[in-house]
Design a protein around this nucleic acid. Structure first.
Length: 367
DNA sequence: AATACTCGCAACCGCAACACG
DNA sequence: CCGTGTTGCGGTTGCGAGTAT
């Protein structure tokens, strides 16, 4: 209902409102969902350079927001939603175009293990990348890559025997039917025929070459400066604001495992997170302290104690050479999480609890 | 050369959460 | 607390380019 009414207002902004089909559409409001851009005379499909210019100029002058009224003010025959999407995914000046590096590959996969299909959160860890881009990249590259490695991209667990890339590609063609290739695969009961195998080998070799190439331009990205919130996902608006406001440093005191999660930790003493960038634009460190005031990050587990960042609180890690260190520490935590998950077969309730805590811990500084 | 097919990605859709009066 | 409008997210679609037949 809100959407319906919202679009009703949107329609008033439409210069083609007088057209008969639109009146018909208006009448149909009471019968179902209102269309967004279609049937109301607004442009759809690919954006033209002129539209891009209009949108960019308007936002540079007036800023983001008020997406619904923006198209009218900017002189665009687009719906606000379309404008927002275009800006967020394509026109924003801080967007990084180009190939996704092998480091980003790795990070995306690891973040996906932790976060699942929460593309916006994953994208939040990759400066300049959009959720749409990450999502597309996952669907077109990484899920295939994992399948080729015998890993189920959804669960990140080994695929059942015989269910590899070739067998899992039941891609639909444009008519919504299974393609002949995939049908062939089905008929062969998962067997890859010679040509397909050659194609896969060719692709593997290419991927391998690409990976080698990318290794030579090794870069590591720290998380964007975000507001930290304990064990819960940020409201969307906050996360957006925090992701885009790298102007000032923030020091956030975060009680790891407080509230309901507290019973699994050694008291309420928190870990302090510092996530931000310095005046030069370089990211500083993330500081975590144990509840006893030590520099260890004490999660309160009997057999899992991670020392993420040692040193005094003032001893910020900064500079490129330290990014590797922090990244490796970060990966180490994720790795341990994965190992625990891998051994999950004979888990006890305590182990489940531990896994939950690890996930929560990881999330607490991902968010 | 023509056609069929695959792939990558921008854009769209529907929904849910959030903001606000 | 409720109703309404706005924003953001994730899934999906479909176009166009590239590749195979």
């Amino acid at each position: 209902m809100p959407m319906v009414l919202g679009k009703c207002v949107l329609w008033r902004c439409c210069v083609h409102l007088a057209f008969a089909p639109i009146i018909s559409s208006l009448r149909s409001l009471s019968m179902g969902r209102a269309p967004c851009c279609s049937k109301v005379g607004l442009h759809r499909g690919p954006w033209t350079p002129r539209e891009d210019t209009l949108l960019t100029n308007y936002i540079q002058t007036h800023g983001e927001g008020n997406w619904r009224s923006l198209p009218k003010k900017a002189g665009l025959l687009r719906c606000g939603k379309s404008c927002r999407l275009r800006w967020m995914n394509y026109l924003r000046p801080d967007i990084k175009r180009g190939n996704i590096s092998s480091d980003e590959d790795d990070l995306i996969i690891r973040l996906h293990i932790l976060l699942g299909n929460r593309w916006s959160l994953i994208a939040g860890r990759l400066p300049g990348r959009t959720d749409n881009e990450i999502k597309n990249y996952w669907n077109t590259h990484l899920s295939k890559k994992l399948r080729l490695q015998g890993i189920d991209p959804d669960t990140h667990k080994p695929l059942p025997h015989g269910s590899g890339e070739a067998n899992s590609r039941k891609k639909k063609n444009k008519k919504g039917k299974l393609s002949s290739a995939s049908m062939t695969n089905n008929n062969n009961n998962g067997q890859i025929n010679k040509k397909q195998e050659q194609a896969l080998t060719k692709k593997r070799n290419k991927d391998s070459r690409d990976a080698d190439e990318k290794k030579n331009r090794h870069t590591i990205h720290l998380p964007k400066p975000v507001r930290v919130k304990s064990f819960s996902m940020l409201p969307r608006n906050e996360s957006f604001v925090s992701m885009t406001s790298a102007a000032s440093d923030r020091v956030i005191n975060n009680n790891v495992g407080d509230d309901d999660n507290n019973n699994n930790n050694n008291g309420t003493g928190g870990a302090s997170f510092f996530i931000g960038d310095d005046e030069c634009g370089d990211y500083k460190m993330m500081m975590m302290r144990g509840e006893d005031g030590s520099d260890d990050l004490d999660l309160g587990f009997d057999h899992h104690q991670y020392q993420l960042c040692a040193g005094d609180e003032d001893d910020f890690i900064s500079g490129e050479h330290n990014l590797d260190k922090l990244y490796n520490e970060y990966l180490q935590v994720l790795k341990t999480t994965n190992e625990v998950a891998d051994n999950n077969a004979a888990t006890t309730d305590d182990d489940h609890e531990l896994l939950d805590q690890l996930d929560s811990f990881a999330e607490s500084f991902l968010v």
